[in-house]
Amino acid sequence: MERLKRRRLRGVACDANYQLNVEDALACAGHDTVIFVDAARGLRRPFTFTEVRAAGSMPAMSHALGPEAILAIAAGLYGKTPDARLLAIRGYRWTLGEGLSAKAEANLALALDFLEGFLKEARP
């Protein structure tokens, strides 16, 4: 997120959270386009970029919420349904205190370049 902020993209606000939660729906409702970004297991490509839609029904889960649930809350509480995408970046090591591996660094750089291009095109 810090690296994305350093790119100083016009009209883009960044927020980093340990896990998504209900108040993130309020932030989503206030934006036209929302990009959820997280590390991901099980990918074969450096990153994937997919459309996210509000969940048809809320998962009966714990405190942590997925992007689909956040969008459903934004729609349910605020009547807003922003264009939303999920940028999932392939990770390799998950141990506490581990920094990014070289391969994850490379994936992150590719993903950020792609995201910058997408956001510039998406700008009204």
Partner: peptide, 24 residues
Amino acid sequence: AVRNIIGVAALNKDLAVQGVLLRK
């Protein structure tokens, strides 16, 4: 399927929004 915060919002939107804003 409705026993959740969106179900609460459908019943009492102000209450659901208050919960979110207290947390925020």
